[in-house]
Design a protein around this nucleic acid. Structure first.
Lengths: 141, 141
DNA sequence: AATATATAATTAGTATGCTAACTATATCAT
DNA sequence: ATGATATAGTTAGCATACTAATTATATATT
């Protein structure tokens, strides 16, 4: 595998993922959600009342990031925070009714986005992606 | 495909790509390069003297991002800027000797990183990745 | 029981990359 | 030729997510 092809693959993946991210983020803004907050909510729709540390693990991000996201979501009325009764260090995060109502529209936007993404990858990008997938399959499975 | 699995795939890809990115970025810092600057240099190693707009296109980023990267790389002595003689709006970016010397070590770090990445993807992540790849193949090829 | 260590969350400061608005130069239309 | 439009790049300010240091609480060690 020469450097030129490695470089193309890397750039092409960046291009695909940044386009995907940008379009979806625009959809989120229409719902008054910022980037990353949808994933926090998605986790709460599965496990309401989890702690901030658990959110860190699920979202693969650091504690300050969760602190900030939670602060913003609380100010917008999507969630509320409550200190754990057994362990006073722990904050538990719960959905408000407003937060619960977002589940359906966000889910809809995500599905819409996936469809757009599949349509928007160019033929030459598909070839590069297929080549990359072959390499990963060969090395990992 | 239910929501749970979609969510897992998305999170897993984020996890894999963020781990990959983090390790490689640490390698770059050892060479006094910041994130993104390696890709700008990689493009110059192919096409020395390209314009900032061309860099935007190759890197899929916006003009202000290039302005800032170029400013930083220039201050660190890896590149220099020269106004185009035909079109005075255009800035052309050239590698200094110091910039040219970085090609080999950066290339080496990248290959090292790729090897680490292949070893670091967990078995359950591989299954999720394989499932995702199947879905993409089914829809795109 | 007192001290040391570990954990959950926060605060402050920083890196990266974005959009909007601007400057300077070039090109097009009349 | 001149006024309108387009293009290259910069500046200012913002969004996201990071690291390091701090606070508060819990647990382990002696």
């Amino acid at each position: 595998m020469n450097d030129k092809v490695e470089c193309d693959i890397r750039e092409s993946l960046d291009k695909i993922s940044s386009r995907m991210r940008r379009e979806y983020n625009e959809n989120l803004r229409e719902l008054n959600l910022y980037v990353g907050q949808d994933r926090l909510l998605a986790r709460l729709w599965l496990d309401d009342g989890i702690t901030q540390m658990q959110i860190c693990e699920h979202l693969k991000c650091e504690p300050p990031t969760v602190t900030n996201m939670v602060k913003s979501l609380e100010q917008n009325g999507f969630i509320y925070r409550k200190r754990d009764e057994q362990d006073a260090r722990v904050m538990r995060i719960y959905l408000t009714d407003k937060g619960k109502e977002l589940e359906k529209p966000v889910d809809f936007k995500w599905k819409q986005q996936q469809e757009k993404l599949l349509g928007s990858i160019l033929p030459e990008e598909r070839l590069i992606l297929r080549e990359l997938m072959k390499r990963i399959e060969r090395n990992l499975f």
